[in-house]
Design a protein around this nucleic acid. Structure first.
Length: 515
RNA sequence: GCCGUUUUAGCUCAGUGGUAGAGCACUUCCUUGGUAAGGAAGAGGUCAUGGGUUCAAAUCCCAUAAAUGGCUCCA
């Protein structure tokens, strides 16, 4: 007999081979009816998978994130099935569940496109197929057979995926006449999918690499009740009404002009009043926290950025230098304030007693963001950072870092940002060439951030490969009205700039707090 | 930068080959003691820009720009 521990702590004894569904049914008929998947020792699985050992078990329904995940992932398969019917020969890449719904990346083949006019037909076909209540059948497949299947189906994307999988780890899922390479898990059958909406279509690179072929990504969402879909769509409409771009125009806060240039906002009188009020509030908080306000120019000589390393990293992809009547003299619009602040630090000898030196500036910076990236006021080519640099001794790093976290949290609270994610952004250990600086300093910096965040009791997520090229960060991510995530604050540790700028007293450290 | 979509009056949009339309806003006048009030008249548009096809283009084609949904990027 197996011991199955339920979320309430009770333990049930079941025969090996009992499925998650059996357990749900033994608890209540309603639970069995609503069960979508099961979580076994933290891993989400099909309800139909037999239990083989003692486990902590949780029945997942629509009310669980994991249940929705299985449901939407299954919906992605359903959409793929509909696409195969409507667009014969379509090649499928990947189709995961996402926060709100799912998507599937597909290759329609030369000359074929999908537009929003085609959505209703796809939705209709999905619901039609869902009504069959086709079971999602899981099957373990030997690698050779998997290759044979997709070779016959002429699906290069699945073959590439299989190539990266180990024999014995490959599973297929089938529902109706549709079979897909898939790790799962899935809901028992397509029956619970009662409402479907294709949300939009967009391009997406195969495997997220812009050198690869661009596929068609179809976003969709499904619900167990038609009413849920209606409510979801209403919520989206409501969010659109709160979009800062719409409000900015209606309330006359800011505007853009093609003549001024893309991504270069014009602050209108009302917006400026708002902005100045915010600056006053922030400045007050900074002064109280021991920061000294400074002001630096909007441009800096090329030398400055060669020294900082930004020229090498971004020089070619950013605004190009400003020339002067003096041959060879070049200035850059400043893309960040750090180098300027380093030079302020250098203006006089610093005693260890002077540290930490905290410099703060509302520094306007200019970055040549890719044209496709511009977005309202959240991604622009000219913007003002609430930026500060702290020059401190190694033994002060953790403490200073914690103080910056306090300041960020204070500001977030005052401004009503109650929902945010603290993200520890570390370097990608598999791709060290993207970064500068020694392994040792990276290790120290990363450890400092992890420790400081832990000591402040922050709930964090850790992302590899999200660090800046010169150092790890603690990023504060917030959501806009449309649910999109943006980095609003960032605290960074940088051992490189002090070395590059020969800053003395002892190797200082620079965290920075950006907008 | 890449893929898709969009760009018509101040705003939100309709108009799909034959000399520009609506609602709101605006101007003037009238009505009305009341908080998105009613009526009348009126002004406002190189239909993003530049080419092309055509007897004729807002409408079809190409290029450019900007916006937008994603992707990639984000010092």
């Amino acid at each position: 007999m197996l011991n199955i521990t339920l979320p309430d702590g009770s333990v049930r004894q079941v025969e090996p081979g009992t499925t998650g569904y059996d357990v749900a049914a033994s608890i209540s008929e309603g639970l069995a009816r609503n069960a979508l998947a099961v979580k076994v020792n933290g891993e989400i699985r099909d309800l139909s998978r037999p239990l083989t050992q003692d486990a902590a078990l949780e029945i997942l329904t629509w009310n669980d994130a994991g249940g929705k995940q299985a449901y939407w992932h299954s919906s992605a398969h359903l959409m793929a099935e509909a696409l195969e019917v409507l667009y014969p020969g379509v090649k499928l890449a990947i189709g995961p569940a996402i926060e709100n719904g799912f998507y599937y990346d597909v290759d329609l083949g030369e000359g074929r496109t999908i537009s929003s006019d085609d959505f209703p037909a796809i939705e209709k076909k999905m619901l039609e197929l869902a009504k069959n209540k086709s079971r999602f059948e899981r099957r373990e497949v030997p690698k050779a057979e998997a290759i044979a299947y997709f070779t016959q189906k002429q699906d290069p994307y699945k073959l590439e995926l299989i190539d990266g999988l180990e024999d014995g780890q490959i599973t297929f899922y089938s529902q109706g006449s549709f079979t897909d390479l898939c790790r799962g898990p899935h809901i028992p059958d397509t029956g619970p999918i009662k409402a479907a909406k294709i949300m939009n279509v967009a391009g997406a690179y195969w495997r997220g690499d812009e050198k690869n072929k661009q596929l068609t990504r179809l976003y969709g969402i499904t619900f167990p009740k038609a009413k849920d879909l209606t409510e979801y769509l209403e919520k989206l409409e409501e969010a659109k009404r709160r979009d800062h771009r719409k409000l900015g125009k209606e309330l006359e806060l800011f505007a853009f002009s093609e003549k001024v240039g893309a991504g270069l906002p014009l602050w209108l009188p009302k917006g400026t009043a708002l902005r100045e009020r915010l600056e006053q509030f922030l400045r007050k908080a900074q002064v109280k926290a021991g920061y000294q306000p400074v002001v630096t120019p909007h441009i800096g000589s090329k030398e400055l950025y060669v020294t900082s390393g930004h020229y090498e990293k971004y020089g070619a992809d950013s605004f190009q230098p400003i020339k002067t009547p003096n041959p060879g003299e070049e200035f850059f619009l400043k893309p960040m304030n750090c180098p300027h602040h380093c030079e302020i630090y250098r203006t006089k000898p610093r005693s260890y007693r002077d540290l930490p030196v905290r410099l703060a500036e509302f520094g306007t910076v200019y970055r040549y963001e890719q044209s496709g990236e511009l977005h309202g006021l959240t991604r622009v080519r000219g913007f003002t950072q609430d930026d500060a640099h702290i020059f401190c001794r190694p033994d002060q790093v953790i403490d200073e870092f914690k103080k910056v976290i306090d300041l960020v949290l204070y500001v977030f609270k005052a401004l009503g940002f109650s929902e945010f994610t603290a993200q520890i952004s570390l370097r990608d250990p598999a791709n060290k060439t993207k970064y500068i600086g020694s392994d040792e300093n990276w290790a120290i910096s990363e450890q400092a951030i992890i420790q400081a965040a832990a000591e402040k009791g922050l709930t964090t997520v850790t992302e590899l490969g999200e660090a800046a090229f010169y150092g790890p960060k603690l990023d504060f991510m917030v959501r806009d009205a449309l649910g999109r995530r943006w980095q609003l604050g960032t605290v960074q540790v940088d051992y490189n700039l002090p070395e590059r700028f020969d800053l003395e007293y002892v190797a200082p450290t620079i965290p920075s707090s950006a907008p």
